[in-house]
Amino acid sequence: MSAHVTHSTQAPALLIIAHGSRDPRHAATVHALTRRVRALRPGLRVETAFLDFDTPTVDQAVASLYLSGVRDVVALPLLLTRAFHAKSDIPAVLAGATSHLPDLSVRIADVLGPSPLLLATLERRLWEAGLTPADRATTGVVLASAGSSDPEAIAVIAEIAREWRHTGWCAVRPAFASAVLPRTEDAVRALRAEGVRRIAVAPYVIAPGRLPDRITAGAEAAGADVIAAVLGPSPELARLLLRRYDAAAPTQARIPALAA
């Protein structure tokens, strides 16, 4: 506990860890979201890092924070589900980045989903794409996620679709851009075959990239009536990041690899 007491007068820095992508729109979206988080919480040190493709890497970001005097960090995975990256990649990368910094405390916040704030962002994007709340009862929605080989992550997406359906939509079906079926176009065609007249596709992804483009292409190929934008740097998403930060900041212990 003594390590936390020493720095209790200063809020832990927030390190947002994104996946990274060869698509420059990905990093641009992450940085826009980071700026929004900073604007919501003036005075909080907020930095970004990427697992792959983009810089700074987690190693670079942690070293930079440490050299500037930071000794308490909340690492927040910019992920919607607890799949492989959240369970394995990020803890391992953080353990490596901090192994030679014994007086640095790092807590890992929960992933972003599921959350009502994510559903609020999904609906914000649908309204921006032309729907209105009055359209719920006559519109079927395809909740299109990137996909995962992790059964837990897939189950979470299916559960979100079930819960969202209870808010008044005609139907809500999950779809996946990779790893598992159905694909976006399959889900759109299935809804059409069931007689749903208006079909909207809502990408459950944070930033543009290869898989979100695949979602859009599938939606267009199957004749979806409305295709929403990705979640992006929405105000609700920025608030959600701070909610996850606040939940992690006061209570969670150091990551196990550091204790070991």
Rank of each mutant, 00 (worst) to 15 (best):
residue 1 M to Q: 13
residue 3 A to S: 15
residue 5 V to D: 14
residue 7 H to Y: 14
residue 16 I to R: 03
residue 21 S to Q: 08
residue 23 D to H: 04
residue 24 P to W: 08
residue 25 R to A: 10
residue 31 H to D: 14
residue 31 H to P: 03
residue 38 R to T: 11
residue 39 A to T: 10
residue 49 A to L: 09
residue 50 F to S: 00
residue 57 T to C: 08
residue 68 S to C: 12
residue 72 D to H: 11
residue 77 P to S: 09
residue 80 L to P: 03
residue 82 R to V: 13
residue 82 R to Q: 15
residue 92 A to E: 14
residue 92 A to Q: 15
residue 101 L to Y: 07
residue 108 I to A: 07
residue 108 I to M: 12
residue 111 V to M: 08
residue 113 G to F: 00
residue 115 S to P: 05
residue 116 P to E: 11
residue 119 L to D: 15
residue 120 A to P: 02
residue 125 R to A: 04
residue 125 R to K: 11
residue 131 L to Y: 00
residue 131 L to E: 08
residue 131 L to N: 06
residue 134 A to R: 10
residue 137 A to Y: 12
residue 140 G to A: 10
residue 142 V to A: 06
residue 144 A to Y: 02
residue 145 S to F: 04
residue 146 A to D: 03
residue 146 A to N: 03
residue 149 S to N: 13
residue 152 E to R: 13
residue 153 A to E: 08
residue 156 V to P: 05
residue 160 I to K: 01
residue 162 R to N: 08
residue 171 A to E: 06
residue 172 V to L: 03
residue 179 A to D: 06
residue 180 V to G: 02
residue 190 A to I: 03
residue 191 L to Y: 01
residue 193 A to L: 09
residue 195 G to D: 04
residue 199 I to S: 00
residue 201 V to M: 03
residue 204 Y to H: 10
residue 211 L to D: 05
residue 211 L to N: 02
residue 212 P to E: 00
residue 213 D to P: 05
residue 215 I to T: 01
residue 217 A to K: 07
residue 219 A to F: 02
residue 224 A to I: 01
residue 224 A to Y: 03
residue 240 L to F: 07
residue 243 R to L: 14
residue 246 D to F: 05
residue 247 A to Y: 09
residue 250 P to K: 06
residue 250 P to N: 07
residue 253 A to S: 15
residue 258 L to F: 12
